[in-house]
């Protein structure tokens, strides 16, 4: 089972993107494991459509880590695990609960098989990635795992600005997505599927086949 980490700063739309991905894989409901800030762990079977509606309505969430199992169509009965992690930010690291969530996120950054790094299209400036995103980017490249930069909320960009961003990030593998309008998710899904298929043997062996 391939383990894909969805990482990014706070409020970039990681959770929404994860559920949209599950939806684009044809899943109506997903099994979700949530680890909360106070340390306890809960299991849920969530209706994807309802969850997306709730997130659309602005429902906030306070879990440290959300593990979502999604079915992949192209792989021989192999499922992928999406880790929807706590957003990394220096300001929120002052709270001890958030800090323990960030420890989990960083640990997953080291152990996961592929990394989807979500950035907010509207927050990108002329200097490129923000300092924290740069650090995540460098660490993912150092690990040499499949890494993709997901530029979310692309519906808020003008075509000209989008072209500018494409030029700025030309050295990265990027996907422009809009989870709200369900755009660009097919390509991202295919990327995860491809990695899942190719790296099945590797991921199985690397963790001793214990998953």
């Amino acid at each position: 089972m391939n383990q894909c980490l969805v990482i990014g700063q706070r409020g970039v739309g990681k959770t929404y993107l994860s559920f949209r991905l599950a939806q684009s894989c044809g899943m109506k409901s997903v099994f979700v494991l949530r680890e909360w800030e106070d340390g306890h762990c809960t299991e849920h079977v969530l209706d994807v459509q309802q969850t997306l509606q709730a997130l659309d309505a602005g429902e906030s969430h306070h879990f440290e880590l959300q593990t979502i199992g999604i079915g992949m169509s192209e792989t021989m009965a192999q499922r992928a695990l999406l880790f929807d992690s706590v957003g990394l930010s220096e300001e929120s690291a002052f709270s001890s609960e958030m800090r323990s969530g960030m420890v989990k996120t960083q640990k997953l950054l080291i152990t996961s098989d592929s990394i989807c790094h979500v950035i907010d299209a509207t927050s990108l400036n002329e200097q490129g990635l923000s300092p924290i995103d740069k650090k995540i980017n460098l660490l993912a490249h150092a690990r040499k795992v499949p890494y993709v930069l997901v530029v979310a909320k692309v519906d808020l960009l003008t075509a000209r600005r989008k072209r500018r961003l494409e030029g700025m990030l030309r050295h990265e593998k990027i996907f422009f997505t809009s989870a709200k309008w369900n755009r660009g998710l097919g390509a991202l899904k295919h990327f995860i599927e491809k990695e899942n298929r190719e790296n099945y043997a590797y991921s199985f062996l690397s963790r001793g086949g214990s998953i």
Binding site: L88, E90, M102, V103, K135, A142, R143
Partner: peptide
């Protein structure tokens, strides 16, 4: 490294930096 980050001895930038150094 993560233990030092959890105990507040490292900030987020330093923690990510040190992890990168380990893997590079």
């Amino acid at each position: 490294i993560l233990d030092r980050f959890a105990r507040g001895k490292l900030n987020l930038f330093a923690s990510l930096d040190q992890l990168r150094q380990v893997y590079e």
